[in-house]
Amino acid sequence: MISFRTLLLGDGTANRVVPPSGFTAALTVVSSAAMAFLAVFAIALGLAASELATRWENELSGTATVRIPASGGEEMVQTEAVLTALRQTPGIAAVRVIEDHEQIALLAPWFGEGVPLDKLRLPTLIEVTETEIGPELDGLRLRLSAEAPGAVYDTHSRWRIPLVEAASRLRFLGVLSLCLIATVTAVTVALAAAASLAANGQVIDVLRLIGARDSWIAAAFTRRFTIRAFLGALGGVVLAMVTVAAIPGGVEAGVLSGLGFDGVEWLLPLLVPVLAAGLAFAATWVAARRRLSGVE
């Protein structure tokens, strides 16, 4: 059996047995580069989606808003009653009435600056911070409706859960994309290797005739295709990393603001050439052994 070291490094003649050029070489390098480029973006997408899902989950879970509708002068009394009820309820850590200037800031995107709050019949909003366990919601809602008819205890779940689910699906999409990219890479390299093996039938016949073992021949082809896939993928990764780094960040960038890498995350794309080489190694090895089984 051929040693792993020989398989990776080969020797002078073995490295030259496989013709150095041809369309299969270009196909392997270009397809590996393209797939690696896409893989880096899939990783970035997956990371961004993951971060988004975590952020939404963390920032919005454990909080709620109580909305007390304007009711012609009874708001103050009802608000005090609700605040008292909330403070007495187990599972609630803190409550706070949202101030007028905060409401103005919330409405500014729709109505502009300087909204005349005194002329609008706006509900009173209370921000609630829940403990880790949280309150018993059915009982709390019943009590609030008794203290302030029309008061709503909103856990944000109506829009928070779909958002978190969407982010999770986006993350799944990133993983699925990586799997598809890996599959396409493996198939492309396997096809290129099979084409190369078929085109070099004479070389294989000669090698078998002079006593080359299947593992030696397979290793010669596998080594060549593994190196090509690695170098192609490395080029694709470098290009993709430069592109990702050039994507503008910040709020102005909108949905693209989270697409990128932070700190050690920049090391993740460097795994792509290694994985591409591994895939090429396995695909070429299988293709070579299959081809050789038909040669005496």
Binding site: D11, R16, V17, L207, I210
Partner: peptide, 19 residues
Amino acid sequence: RFVDHLTVAENVTLPLAVS
């Protein structure tokens, strides 16, 4: 038949390499 992209010397010594 030979491996046409190798020199004659390399072809002649190929059995040494494969063994």
